[in-house]
Amino acid sequence: MSQPLIGRVRESATLKFLVRRLLHTVVVLFGVLVLVFTLIHLVPGDPVRIALGTRYTQEAYDALRAASGLDRPLLEQFFSYIGHALTGDLGVSFRNGAPVTEVLLGRIPATVSLAAVGLIIALLISIPAGTFSALREGTFGDGVVRVFSQFGVSIPDFWMGMMLITLFSSILGWLPSSGYVAFGDDPGEWFRRVLTPGLTVGLVAGSIMTRYIRGAVLEVAGMSYVRTARSKGLAPRVVTGVHIARNAFIPVLTIAGIQMATMLGGVLVVEVVFAWPGLGRLVYDAVSSRDYPVVQGAVLLIAIAFLAVNLIVDALYALVDPRIRLS
C-alpha cells in the first residue's frame, strides 16, 4: 500500500473517530440536562418560597414562579428548559434576578486562572518527580518521591490550604490569605493572590499525577525497544528523551486532562477556604440559598467543561500517536 494511500486511510479513520466522540459527547450532554432537571425537581421543598425568605409576599411569589416557569406543567418545563439551554438562556437567579448565564460568565475567569496555575504547578512537579522516581526504581530517591506523593494524595485540600495560608501569610507575610483580583486589573496583584490557592490545587494534583507518570514511565522503560536502544550503547539522556518520554506521553495526557477538567469544575473546598469567586464557590452559595437555576446552570457548565476536555484529549491521542487504533 502506497504512503499517500496509507495517509488518507489514517485521516479518514481519525475523522470517523472524532465524529463518533463528538456524537457521544452530545448524547452524554443531553443525559446531563435530563439528570440535572430531574434532580432539582426531586429536591423537597418549594424553591421559590425558600428563595424569597423574609421577602415573601403572595405577589412576589407568583411573579417569581411565573418568571422561572415553575407554574407550568412539568413536561412543558422540561422542554422549555432544554430549548432555552440550547440557546444559552439558563433562566434567572432566584437571589438577585440576574441572568444565570451572566452570573456564570462572571465566575469563569477566576476559575480558569486558578485551574491554569494549578495545572502548571502540577506538571512542573509531577513530570520530573515521576520520571526521576521511575528511572531510579527501588532506590532511596524513589522511596522519597513515593512517600511525598502519597502524603499529597492523602491530605485534605482544606488542610493543605490552611497550612499554606499559615506559612505564606501569617508567618512569612509574603502573600495575602484570600481574595481575588482580575489579571486585567493588576497582573502583579493577581499573581500574588492566585499563587497560594494555585499551590494548594497544584500540590494535590501534582501528587496524583506523579504516581501515574511514574507508572507510565516504568511501563515504557520495560519495553523491548527501550532495552534494545540501551544495548546499542545510546546515551541515557537519548533513551529517556526519545524512546521513553515520548511514548509515556499518552497516559500523561489522560491524567492531565482529568485534572484540568476537575479544576475547571471548581475545586469547591479550595475556593471556599480562599474566598475565591469561582464556579465551585458559586455552587456552594447557590445550594445554600436554594438558588436552583444557578445550580442547574453551574452543573451544566461543569459537565460541558469535562466533556470538552475529554474530547480534546481524544483528539490529541489521534494526533500524538497515529498507531493508536481509533475505535
Rank of each mutant, 00 (worst) to 15 (best):
residue 6 I to Q: 15
residue 19 V to Q: 10
residue 21 R to D: 04
residue 23 L to T: 14
residue 24 H to I: 11
residue 24 H to A: 15
residue 29 L to Y: 10
residue 29 L to K: 05
residue 42 L to H: 04
residue 42 L to V: 13
residue 43 V to H: 08
residue 45 G to P: 07
residue 47 P to F: 01
residue 47 P to L: 01
residue 48 V to I: 13
residue 50 I to H: 09
residue 55 R to M: 08
residue 57 T to G: 11
residue 62 D to R: 07
residue 62 D to Q: 11
residue 68 S to D: 08
residue 73 P to G: 09
residue 75 L to Y: 12
residue 76 E to V: 15
residue 78 F to P: 05
residue 82 I to V: 15
residue 84 H to K: 15
residue 84 H to G: 14
residue 89 D to N: 10
residue 92 V to C: 07
residue 92 V to I: 15
residue 97 G to S: 10
residue 98 A to T: 14
residue 100 V to A: 06
residue 103 V to S: 08
residue 108 I to Y: 04
residue 119 L to E: 00
residue 120 I to K: 00
residue 122 A to E: 00
residue 128 P to Y: 03
residue 132 F to G: 06
residue 134 A to D: 02
residue 135 L to W: 02
residue 136 R to W: 03
residue 140 F to T: 15
residue 143 G to P: 12
residue 149 S to W: 04
residue 153 V to T: 12
residue 154 S to T: 13
residue 160 M to G: 10
residue 164 L to W: 00
residue 170 S to P: 07
residue 172 L to P: 02
residue 173 G to D: 02
residue 174 W to G: 13
residue 176 P to F: 04
residue 177 S to P: 11
residue 178 S to L: 09
residue 179 G to N: 06
residue 184 G to V: 13
residue 185 D to P: 09
residue 185 D to G: 12
residue 186 D to W: 00
residue 188 G to K: 05
residue 196 T to Q: 02
residue 201 V to N: 04
residue 203 L to F: 12
residue 205 A to S: 13
residue 206 G to I: 05
residue 206 G to M: 07
residue 207 S to T: 06
residue 209 M to C: 03
residue 219 E to W: 02
residue 223 M to D: 15
residue 225 Y to V: 12
residue 232 K to A: 10
residue 234 L to T: 02
residue 247 N to S: 09
residue 250 I to D: 01
residue 253 L to V: 11
residue 255 I to M: 03
residue 256 A to Y: 05
residue 257 G to E: 01
residue 258 I to T: 12
residue 258 I to V: 14
residue 275 A to T: 15
residue 283 V to I: 13
residue 288 S to M: 14
residue 289 S to W: 08
residue 291 D to L: 08
residue 299 V to D: 03
residue 304 I to E: 04
residue 307 L to F: 03
residue 308 A to F: 10
residue 309 V to E: 03
residue 311 L to G: 10
residue 316 L to R: 00
residue 318 A to Y: 01
residue 319 L to S: 09
residue 319 L to R: 08
residue 321 D to K: 04
residue 324 I to D: 05
residue 324 I to M: 05
